[in-house]
Every structure is written in C-alpha cells, then in structure tokens.
Nucleic acid binder design. Structure first.
Lengths: 354, 354
DNA sequence: TCAGAATCAGATATCGGTTTCACGAAAGGA
DNA sequence: TCCTTTCGTGAAACCGATATCTGATTCTGA
C-alpha cells in the first residue's frame, strides 16, 4: 500500500503538504494542490485510517450494542443508527449480546481495547441480580471513557444521554382501549418477571384499571418468555381457566401473535370470544389473522437515527459537561380487528414530540 | 489514558517487556511478568488497538456489507458472523446499503480508508445495468486488498470465497412439491426482474415443469417487489385473471405471506382454492394463517458463521494464493397447511452437506 | 525603502504500540 | 578454565499519518 510519503515523493512535495491537501487545508497553493491530487489519483492512494486515528485520537467509529439482533426492533433501529452515521462518515461496530450480561461485559472490554468514539446501547436483561448487573454495566461504560447513549427505559450511567419510550403510557393506552370497548375482565400476558419494560407497561395497565375503579385479578396476570411461544403458552394457561377474561393485553406483539394462535387452536373467535391487543406494531401484526390491535412504537428507525445524532453531537460537543439529555418518544394506539370486529377502525392518535 | 510507558515506568521495566507480557511472549521471567501484571491491573491499562494496528497491520476487524438489514435473513446471518468473529476476538463493522449500488460503492471506499482485515458481502441488486455494477463492485473489492467472502449466488471477484445456496434446486423442489400434489396450473410470483436469486429459482421452477412435460404460462409469471406488498399486489393481479392457476410458487416467504393476505381478501380458501408455497422458512411462516409451506433455507446463522470462519481462515492463511472455496448449502422442503389441507404433513428431507 | 505581517511549505516531533537488534549474564560444552 | 550458546532485557527504529515549529518569500504600509 502506498503511503503519504510515496505520494509526496511522486508529487515532489513534502508529506505535510500532501496531508494538507487531503484535509482541505486552505493554505496550499492551487498548483501544488493539483500536483498532489494527480499523484493521489495516479497511485490510488488511500490514507491509513489507523495512522490518522493514532495521531488525532478520533476513530470515526461508534459501537452499537444490542441484546437480540433477531428481534426486528433492533435491525430497524440499527438501520437508523447506520444512516445517521454514514451521513457523517462514521462507521458502525455491531455487537449482539444475546441478552447475556457476561457477553455484554466482554464486548465492552473488547471495545475499550479497539477504541470507539461513542456507544449506543440497549442493555441486556440480566437473568438474576439486576442491581449488580447494572452496577457492572455502569463500570464497564465508564471504563470506555466515551459518550454513551442508552436506548431503553432506564439511564445506563449518570452521564449517558437517553432515548426512551413512555412505556407506562403505552400500557395505559392499550388497557384504556380495552376498557373503552366495555371490557372489565382483562388479562395480562407479561414478559420475563425482571424485565423493566414489562414492569412499566404493567404499571400503565394497573393505572388504567385503577382509573376505572377496577381491581386487577392476579390469576389473569401471567409471566412468560417474551417470545411467540411464551405468548402461546401463557394464553393456553389463561384459556384453561374456568373463569377466563374477555380481553387480553400482551406485553408485545410477538406474544400477542402467539396468543392468537392459542385462541385459534381453542376454536375461539377473536375478538368476539376474546379480544387481544399487543404492543410494537411489528409488520406481521398488520397481516396476521385477524390483524392485531396494538400500540405502535414510535418508529424504531427514527429512534435509532436520533440516538446516533445525539451521540455524534455529544462527540463533537465543545463543552464536555453539558447536562445529559433525555428524549421521550410517544406511542400510538392502532386499532385493528383483534379488538374491534367491525372494520370501522377508530384510530386514536397522539402527537409524538421531540 | 495510560500508555504502555506509564505502565513500564510503574513496573520498573521497559516498554518492550510490558509489550511482551501483554502478548504472552514466553521470554519473560515470571517475577517480571507478575510485576507488569500488577501495574497493568493497578492502572486499569488497556492497550491502544490503534497503535497496535498501525504497527502490526492487523485491525482485527471485518466488515459485513448487506443490502437490507430489515429482511430477517440478514440479521440471522449477521448473528452467525458476529458469533464467529467474537470467538476469535474480531469486531464486526456493519454496513447496510439499502440495495443501492452507489451507497455500496461509497461504503467500500470508506472501508478501504478505515481499514478492515476482511469483508463478507451480499451485493446489492443493481437497478439497471447489471454488468457495469458488477464490474464496479469487483473494482471496489480489489481496491480493498483484503480477503472477501461472498454470500450470494454468483462469485463477486475471481479470488473471493463463496457461500451459496443451491437456488435452482430450491425452485425445483418447491415446484416439484406442487406437481406431486397434482397441480398442473402453477403461477410464479417473482421478485425484481434483474434479481439473480429470482432468476435461479425460476430456472428450477421451469426445469420442474419441463420434467413433467408441462409448458409454463407466461401470464402466470409475475414480477413484483420482493416484499410483502409486492406479493400482495402480484397475487391480486393473478386472482383477477379469469383463468387462474390452482397453485402459486412465491419466490420468497414474505411475498407468499402477502399472497396469502390477498387470497383471504378475495375470500379464497388456502389450499383448497389456491395452494401457496414460499421460500425461506422465516419464523412467521410457521404461524401464519394457514401455516406456509416453504423451502427452508439452510439456516442463515450457520451460513453466516461459516462465512466468517472461511474469511478468518483466509486472513490467517499462510499461503495467500490457495484457490477459492465455494461452499454450497442445500435447502429443504417444509410442508405445511398452505399446500396440504390435512395436517398429515409429509416432510421431504435432504441432507445438507458442507 | 525597509520593518513587520502574512502566507506557504518543509523539517521534525509525536501518537502508542511492536519488533529488531545488541548486549550482558548465565548456562553448557570441551 | 575458557569459549560458545542461550536467555532475558532494554534501546531504538518503525508503522503512517497529523500538528507544531521554523524559515523563506511575498505583501503591506509608514
């Protein structure tokens, strides 16, 4: 590979001048600039990013650490992150942790070694000992010595910027919709017991019931793996009850889809025999049978894009100690046939603010 | 940040010794090694990957260039790539091109600048002028000066290793299945006209028809965007024909799912009125209504993992001019209710070889 | 006309590691 | 005992850029 010295020799100038030309430094005579550019093109010269980084301390690289690349949520988000990065010439290092805090920690250490200018992270959900896991995460992130943006409900470090969704409101809106349809017997298909998202959406669920003077029935509130099979299993359990609810709020769409399958298997009509609503508005929910009512997440692409923008701003920020930013995205109710049989859909909209 | 010199000073040795300890060079006395390790731990020293790369020419980083991160195929593949990389301490740079050859080219140039040790690529599908696009891609890849592994049907450069699926056989098997069920009037929902995958699967489709002495009906062979909406639109078109087929082979599952939706809207029963088979065996196809018969791709995770392994071997290969490897994965028919109404599924299996 | 400022380009130090080389000490062989 | 080999270590060169410093030249204005 050609170096800047090879180019400078060919162009008959010093390496400094070549560097100036490549960095668009105005202090170069036009004729020299042309000479250099000719040499650069003739030799197909590409400056070494490594050498550059060593001197400038900038890597032009950020990392995205996510727990589950197979969940469509994250690719969509990554897409936004990617686009925002590309627009400013940054590269994206992708790290998938498979929801394993050990692996997450290992990754962060690897990233510290290789060097990145910033980090966007959705922390993995710790299996046990949540408090300790959070502590370690915070440690690992501080070690990195770079700006961090968390996309999740809780702040990851005291300094980290935060992109989040109003999850409590999400649970509230879904439940409110079922209540507005006249349901008073409402089940809840929750995800893993220690998931923060589950916790917040349930809080909204309970708040809505409470607002209508209803008491939640613990028997109708089931935990499960936040996957299709989890929803399927939990729904089966729910339907086996002699005293079953007339509507179900699933903590996310894939669980809700699993629940739909379980309802079909039990020869129940949706929504006549049991109404189902999910959260996320994944593509599949529009074409499932029946199409799934849900609370639409505020466009993962946008969230990812915003996260990257916030991070890049922070990286280039003149003042290192500006206070942290929290950007809340709102969710939106999407009414489909899994809660309202007639196709006269009433879509309640909410403005999403930045 | 602490440097290797800070550590050497604290440990009372030279930087060379610290470097030797960190690289597990055996030529260091145990007591000195301990001294150095103590200092490293005390100072939380993390060596700079940038400085290391500059000297060693290794970045321990590979790039994955894919056309559509929102297609579940690619996250699954990326997952495998990621895991294989992690196992050997490599980082993964993700580049999503949105199927835009311009962007792909830009990315590859950016990657040349930043430096990677190798590259795994699924080329984007060029809109027009395929030959020229392929030529440019080859140029861009050669510029990179690093080993390349293509995951796609056609080799990307003369030197590149190749992971591929027998797509012709895929089309053949899907069609053969419909023929075996007695269908003689079979439609084809193709993707973009210039897609190489579409081409090969269609070749298999035609080969199967031919083997049964049937002549393909061009009116039943429709092009569309290889997405859900594309399948939906193409199916609507097909169903509007007075003389419509009794079975449909969609070039992939998402198109097939779009087709299912179109059939439901037309109040047709699947498979009684029209049978549908797709390709890919995405998660959704198992739970769609009805569950979708399909030809299962050979596990994208495995393909990604294998691609990364091949690439890493090549990167560490002692002889740079070993001939290129082509690894063919086979597909497997999965029979579900969208082609066979009774649940007595006959699953024809094929051995997948490496 | 000449001091002082502005402009441009080259020499050189530097980033933080790795690697080669040289050297002294210890070990082995005759 | 002396010479050679091996081993462990440090000094210094090096990777390929950027940034600072310096010197030469041109420009400005009193």
């Amino acid at each position: 590979m050609a170096t800047i010295y090879d180019v400078s020799k060919r162009a008959g100038v010093s390496a400094s001048t070549v560097s100036r030309v490549l960095n668009n430094n105005p202090q170069v005579a036009p004729e020299l600039r042309q000479l250099v550019m000719d040499a650069v093109n003739a030799m197909n010269f590409v400056p070494s990013g490594t050498a550059r980084s060593l001197k400038t301390k900038r890597t032009e690289r950020i990392a995205l650490v996510i727990p589950d690349i197979n969940n469509p949520f994250f690719p969509e988000m990554a897409h936004g992150v990617q686009d925002a990065c590309e627009a400013r010439g940054y590269h994206l290092i992708l790290s998938n942790t498979d929801d394993d805090p050990e692996r997450e920690s290992r990754y962060l250490k690897m990233l510290a070694k290789v060097g990145v200018d910033g980090l966007i992270i959705t922390p993995s959900v710790p299996g046990t000992n949540r408090r300790a896991a959070e502590k370690r995460l915070e440690q690992d992130l501080l070690m990195l010595q770079v700006p961090v943006v968390g996309i999740f409900v809780a702040p990851v470090t005291p300094q980290a910027d935060q992109i989040c969704v109003d999850e409590d409101l999400t649970g509230f809106r879904a439940t409110e919709h079922l209540l507005a349809l006249g349901h008073t017997r409402i089940g809840l298909l929750q995800g893993e017991a220690n998931s923060a998202v589950t916790e917040l959406r349930r809080a909204g669920f309970l708040r809505a019931l409470n607002a209508h003077g209803l008491t939640p029935n613990p028997v109708w509130m089931l935990n499960g793996h936040a996957r299709r099979e989890g929803g399927h299993a939990a729904m089966q359990q729910l339907l086996a009850l002699s005293d079953r609810p007339s509507a179900v709020f699933a903590i996310n769409d894939v669980m809700a889809l699993g629940a739909l399958a379980a309802a079909h298997e039990a020869n129940l009509r949706v929504p006549e025999d049991i109404a189902v609503i999910g959260v996320d508005n994944i593509a599949e929910s529009a074409t499932s049978y029946p199409p799934l009512s849900t609370v639409a997440m505020p466009n993962n692409y946008d969230q990812g894009y915003t996260a990257a923008q916030v991070l890049l701003e922070r990286i280039h920020a003149p003042n290192k100690n500006a206070s942290r930013r929290t950007i809340v995205f709102e969710t939106q109710l999407v009414v489909r046939a899994s809660t309202v049989s007639e196709q006269a859909k009433v879509s309640s909209r909410s403005s999403s603010e930045l």
